[in-house]
Nucleic acid binder design. Structure first.
Length: 864
RNA sequence: GGUCACAUAGCUCAGAGGUAGAGCACUACGUUGACAUCGUAGGGGCCACAGGUUCGAUCCCUGUUGUGACCACCA
């Protein structure tokens, strides 16, 4: 006997335990060669999972479960990410709160701290994944810095290096002065802020000045030229002349460069190659020296006049402006709105700085990645995202791989004292290389020092789909599961991750990493705000699971998996999901109360089913399964969930259960419980706990839904039948009850026809859903009662009181409108010629409506 | 500046070249052999605007307006 409500808190852990072994088995045992693989995006070890993670996870789990149910060897490859900078910040902040500085701790001890944090955060993440009902084998959990992954990363680096795609260069990069590391373009986000444009006078001759507009007056000390457009007639005479940099005695030349835009500012710009990306390029074109005027914390260095040394950018700016104003060199100040580059993770304002960094040459890799998608080897769902993907890859820049932090994969390059670099998998290998390079015995090789920089965390992520399967070894897993099938992720990491995985997979394995990229929508809060800790609108999935049950959360999320749009999730939505879980529970309770016992020998597809209602629900069920499967194939998980909800509520509960309350025959009981079994199989992938529990309670404690297939590939007879007709008649009767306000059961009068037999055989359930006392055959309706029409057939409800004509007026007016609309279509000759089939349907439809209308008018006439 | 979305019921959003849909909210009724975490019935829409294609457009195309996201630029 089932309790009042589904006790998820009690049952979920039991189901998890029961499923664990089977899940692992379906992966480990070679039952079939059909495989389905998803590499789960490894969450960062920066804390616990948020609702967005839960959302992605659930979508993946549904795809996995459905495939597993249908006999695939199903691998959801779990992992967690060391999250380079992000994790370093988290742990550094923890230490800072305890009053410990990184410097005092030292690199080695700091890394130990991060490892112990990794254990803590990793455990939390794993716990959450388990609680979410992820059908994955956690024994396969990988970490981007575990031994094998680390080896693979080094291998990948050396391969790219030996191929000449990785190089070290002094370039201008985005520098984070708080973390004191380079970051990639992608990690910089621009914020629109109010700011100022200052117009500064550069002295040309005694009384002649050139006015330059800038938002960065403190960088004038790094200026190496002023530039005008070569065709700008106003300034052609200035080219090659010299000006003096304000506040200094340094003189720079005026050059001509295409980059100058005569429309902008004064048409002349200052060239500061050390502190501006464009100026860096201009400087290169004109062989200008690069002058760095800042240190790694973005304080001015000894290259600037003494008064301004060691000041951070903001303070330096104030002081420079004051000095300029004082010497009359500040022409004017304008308020403007401009964008300022920030690093979201540290909150630092990014400084373009020239530093020594490792770069990956990406052009060729990108070309291959573009082609793979163009050729359809990788599909995006929804496919609009290919634009985003192409756009980025077609304008790709070299990837700055190096980070000046401690936590991460240390770059496998060793330096000899003379600066010669040896890229190798191990130090020993580097020494060997050095020995042969210097042509000395191993013991005479000068001391080598390893590169201190670590790799961008996305470097290891980009290798993830094949590293988790054993690469660089030619492993069995790689043969079996690679390329993987689907990647599920958010659009925000198409650049960071998706495109780089495709580039690296093509380079290292010669194949695409996956064939489908399912881009799931971004989860926002109820008001459409992005969830963030600072806004305080983050919903913890654990909280929701504890309060409403995991199935409720899973169902709610799936229902929202609408492609191509952000979704809003609030607690009230989860409440609705929970209500649906309760609905499943109550339907099951009804069947057990009715003592429907599962009979494995009963076949729903047997021609021996006699009861029309049973035939009807079986047909509905088959239809539902077909539809559900089609939605899955189109990656429309929202519609998949919707079809599950609709079938159970609108068809199984509202019609079938209501109708069979008066039927106690064996066939009906068998049908009811068998149809419900099919429902549970379909619903299982979204709501694994309640379905698995009900399966165990009502059907079998030996088998699990986890591996019960349900796809129906036979054909269905969709022709309308009398069951449907009578369900509609019942609905019409209920509607009349509602409109008139009848609360008692009444009697229905029917004029006998060739279908009397059907009515007699099905009277019990018709009476039930139409809330009738009796069904009586008559030859003619009397003047009393409520007469009504359903699809041409007239009925009469016994009713002695007078009813309002308004009820009929409304029906008459909608009928008339329908007829009008249909007539317009039918009279259209081109329509008749173009679509004769449809035209015929419309014609018959109108005929029906016209008959209904005529009868309705007649009834209305009788009534008044 | 470029790219991609989006504009449908009070709200959040589905939808298909030919009957406008759901959930929530709202109104009325209701403990009929599961279910008040419920049921039954009901009200509510020039499907942003303007053109075009079509026999027919809310749906396809173009433009306009508005909203959002991303990329780039920012002397």
């Amino acid at each position: 006997m089932l309790g009042k409500l589904f006790d998820y808190a009690q049952i979920e852990p039991k189901i998890i335990e029961k499923a664990r072994i089977i899940i692992a088995q379906t992966i480990r045992e070679n039952v079939t060669n059909k495989t389905f693989t998803i590499t789960l995006p490894p969450p960062n070890i920066t804390g616990s999972l948020h609702l967005g993670h839960a959302f992605t996870s659930v979508i993946q789990d549904i795809l996995l479960r459905v495939k597993r149910q249908h006999g695939y060897v199903t691998l959801g490859q779990p992992g967690i990410d060391h999250a380079g900078i992000a994790a370093q910040i988290v742990v550094a902040n923890q230490l800072y709160e305890k009053g410990i500085s990184l410097q005092s701790l030292g690199r080695e001890d700091f890394i130990k701290k991060v490892w112990s944090w990794k254990e803590q955060s990793g455990d939390m993440i794993v716990h959450q994944l388990v609680k979410l009902g992820m059908s994955i084998d956690l024994d396969r959990l990988r970490f981007t810095m575990d031994q094998d992954a680390s080896k693979a990363v080094l291998k990948a680096f050396t391969m790219l290096y030996n191929d000449g795609l990785i190089y070290k260069a002094k370039r201008i990069v985005n520098w984070d002065p708080i973390l004191k590391t380079a970051v990639s373009d992608l990690e910089v986000s621009n914020k629109i802020e109010p700011g100022k444009m200052w117009y500064i006078r550069y002295q040309l001759q005694q009384d002649e000045f050139i006015v330059i507009a800038t938002t960065r007056p403190e960088t004038i000390f790094g200026d190496q030229a002023l530039a005008v457009h070569p065709n700008d007639e106003r300034y052609m005479h200035l080219v090659d002349k010299e000006v003096k940099i304000p506040l200094t005695n340094r003189r720079i030349h005026i050059i001509a460069d295409e980059h100058a835009d005569p429309q902008k500012g004064s048409g002349i710009f200052k060239v500061t190659p050390g502190h501006d990306f464009f100026d860096f390029d201009v400087g290169k074109r004109h062989n200008l020296p690069i002058l760095s005027i800042m240190d790694e914390s973005a304080c001015l260095n000894n290259e600037v006049p003494e008064d301004f040394r060691h000041l951070p950018v903001a303070a330096a700016r104030e002081k420079v402006l004051a000095a300029l104003a004082h010497s009359g060199l500040l022409e004017k100040t304008e308020d403007i709105v401009h964008s300022v580059p920030y690093n979201d993770r540290s909150g630092a304002v990014i400084e373009p700085m020239v530093t020594n960094q490792w770069f990956l040459e990406t052009t060729k890799l990108a070309d291959a990645a573009i082609r793979a998608v163009e050729d359809g080897k990788v599909k995006f769902v929804p496919d609009q995202w290919v634009h985003t993907y192409f756009e980025w890859l077609r304008n790709i820049q070299p990837w700055c791989l190096s980070r000046q932090i401690w936590w991460g994969h240390q770059i496998p390059v060793w330096y000899a004292p003379n600066g010669k670099m040896f890229c190798a998998l191990t130090e020993e290998e580097a020494i060997q290389q050095a020995a042969s390079y210097f042509d000395v015995a191993r013991e005479f090789v000068p001391k080598l020092t390893q590169e201190q920089d670590v790799l961008d965390t996305w470097f290891s992520s980009a290798l993830w789909p094949f590293v988790t399967l054993g690469w660089p070894k030619d492993s069995e897993d790689l043969k079996k599961y690679y390329p993987t099938d689907v990647l599920v992720t958010g659009f925000d990491i198409i650049f960071f991750w998706v495109s780089r995985m495709i580039m690296f997979s093509l380079y290292f394995t010669g194949d695409v990493p996956f064939s489908v990229v399912y881009i799931n929508p971004l989860v926002r809060d109820e008001n459409g705000q992005k969830m963030s800790k600072s806004k305080g609108n983050v919903i913890d999935p654990l909280y929701l699971m504890d309060k409403y049950g995991t199935d409720a959360l899973r169902f709610t999320l799936t229902l929202q998996a609408i492609p191509g749009r952000d979704i809003r999730i609030g607690e009230s939505l989860v409440e609705c999901g929970r209500n649906f879980i309760t609905k499943i529970w109550n339907a099951a309770k009804f069947l057990t109360i009715k003592e429907c016992a599962y009979d494995v020998t009963f076949s729903m597809y047997s021609p021996n089913i006699v009861n029309a209602l049973n035939k009807w629900i079986i047909r509905q069920m088959v239809c539902f399964k077909k539809q559900a499967f089609a939605h899955l194939e189109n990656y429309r998980l929202d519609l998949f969930a919707q079809s599950i909800q609709k079938f159970l509520r609108d068809i199984f509960c509202d019609v079938y259960i209501e109708a069979i309350k008066t039927c106690d025959d064996v066939e009906t009981k068998n049908t009811a419980i068998s149809v419900f079994a099919e429902f549970l199989k379909v619903a299982h992938s979204i709501t694994p706990f309640i379905t698995e529990y009900l399966w165990e309670e009502m059907y079998s404690d030996k088998t699990m839904l986890l591996v019960e297939p349900w796809e129906y590939s036979g054909s269905i007879d969709e022709s309308p039948d009398l069951t449907n007709f009578w369900i509609d008649v019942a609905a019409e009767i209920r509607s009349l009850y509602g409109l008139i306000g009848i609360t008692q059961k009444s009697d229905l009068l029917v004029i006998g026809d060739e279908y009397n037999g059907f009515i007699q055989a099905n009277e019990h359930w018709i009476k039930q859903i139409a809330r009738l006392n009796s069904l009586q055959f008559v030859n003619k309706f009397s003047r009393d009662g409520i007469r009504f029409i359903v699809r041409g057939k007239e009925f009469c409800l016994k009713y002695s009181e007078k009813i309002s004509v308004a009820i009929f007026d409304k029906k008459i007016s909608t009928l008339s409108k329908d007829i009008q609309r249909l007539t317009l279509k039918i009279d259209n000759l081109q329509y008749k010629n173009a679509k004769p089939d449809k035209w015929n349907v419309d014609y018959k439809f109108r005929e029906q409506k016209q008959q209904d209308l005529a009868k309705m008018l007649e009834i209305r006439g009788v009534m008044t």
